[in-house]
Simulated assay, not measured.
Amino acid sequence: MRTPLNDTKLYTVGEVAKLCNISKKTLRFYDQLGLISPDYVSPENNYRYYSEKTLSSISIVKYYKQMGFKLSEMQGLIGKPSYFYHESNFVAKINELTAEQKKIQNELIQLHDWQRLLQEARMISTQYSDTISVKCLQEQTYCSLDQAFSYDYRESILNIPWTNYLQSKKQEITGPVVLKFNSYLDKYHGVSEQATIIQKPVSCEHPIPNALTFGGFFVSAYHLGPMETLNEEYPKVEQWAADNGYTCGPECYERYVIDYWSTTNPDQFITEILIPITKKCATK
């Protein structure tokens, strides 16, 4: 169509939709947003028409969408005479996407760690439930918080003060909850009144609150079933260490592989008991 006003070739909404591979509904939405408006509206039938120059702007919109811009963020971008305006918007979008990338990466770390816990639980429950062994854990820095302990495992694991504390420090964690007890004998005999909850930080972007180094050589044993029966494992571990020439303790760690975060069935709980060990010196 050529208008009598400027003799410019114009295209109907249907023609634009076909040429630019977009729907008529999308084209109308662009108009409502003030993003791409028709060059001419017929006073007789209210039909909308677009020039070739306006059609080319649709390619710009598509490319902006490809770069992550929302339609609402494109208002005012098309047709700006200065490229400095575009540069400032690109910098803002780069910063936004970089922050989103970090967030997604942290979420992936947490999901992978949880999946690995489930895989560990499947392996232990089917193959190695009665195994006691020496384990070497690479030293890593964990977040920690000292708390009262009353043998209420649910309260210690689904730990509201802990999550609030981490939130106040802007710290995200991953992996299982681990409780450290200063005396494995006190824990075994049911008289522990204090524990330190520790978990691995997702990243070191923020200072790690109450940083605690966890790692080294341990005697390891898995307990399957309710946590109230955990103490049954301690004499077995102690005897195994003595039989193999190791000295235990003094502290111990309980690493909750499958717990209240994963199931409501206590019979499916899996807890790893970790007690630091040193080799006894041979006597002459």
Rank of each mutant, 00 (worst) to 15 (best):
M227N: 13
I277F: 06
N210A: 07
I277G: 06
D267L: 09
A148F: 04
S23C: 01
S262T: 12
L33I: 01
Q115W: 03
L5K: 11
I273M: 08
S51N: 06
T126I: 05
L166A: 12
L224R: 14
Q119I: 07
L77P: 00
L108R: 07
I36Y: 02
Y11D: 05
D186W: 00
F69K: 05
G190R: 04
V134K: 09
L230E: 06
G216W: 00
L33D: 07
A195W: 00
T12W: 03
I109H: 10
T196W: 02
I36M: 03
V16C: 14
L224W: 00
T213I: 10
A99M: 04
Q110H: 05
N210L: 04
Y142M: 12
Q32Y: 06
K284Y: 04
S88Y: 05
K279T: 12
L97C: 13
I104P: 01
S133V: 00
T247S: 14
E87Q: 12
T263N: 11
S82N: 13
Y260M: 07
A211W: 01
A99L: 05
Y30K: 15
A221E: 01
N182Y: 06
Y30R: 10
V177W: 00
N265C: 10
I132N: 03
T26Q: 15
N210V: 02
K80E: 11
N182I: 09
K187H: 09
N182W: 01
Y49H: 08
D113I: 02
M123H: 08
G216R: 01
Q147E: 14
F149K: 04
A241V: 07
S129I: 08
P266D: 15
F90I: 10
R48P: 04
G245M: 09
Q138S: 15
S168P: 04
I109F: 07
C20R: 15
E100C: 07
L118N: 12
G34P: 04
S156I: 07
N106R: 11
W162H: 13
T174I: 10
V134N: 04
I198A: 02
R48W: 07
L35P: 00
D130G: 10
P209I: 00
T98Y: 06
K80S: 14
T8R: 14
D39N: 15
E44V: 08
T247E: 13
E52A: 15
N106C: 11
A99T: 12
L55Q: 01
Q199I: 02
G215P: 01
Y47C: 08
I197F: 03
Y83W: 05
D267W: 04
L274K: 01
G175W: 02
K102D: 03
Y234C: 13
K25F: 13
V134D: 05
V91W: 06
K9W: 05
L274H: 03
K9Y: 09
S203L: 05
K102W: 01
E107D: 12
P207H: 05
D152S: 12
I58V: 11
P81C: 09
Q127L: 13
W261K: 13
M74T: 11
K9S: 09
S72F: 02
K53M: 07
L27W: 01
I208Y: 00
H112W: 02
T26E: 14
H206A: 06
I160S: 12
G190S: 05
W114H: 11
T3R: 14
E52N: 11
F149W: 09
I58H: 04
N106P: 04
C143H: 03
Q115M: 08
Y11P: 12
I275C: 07
L33C: 06
G34C: 06
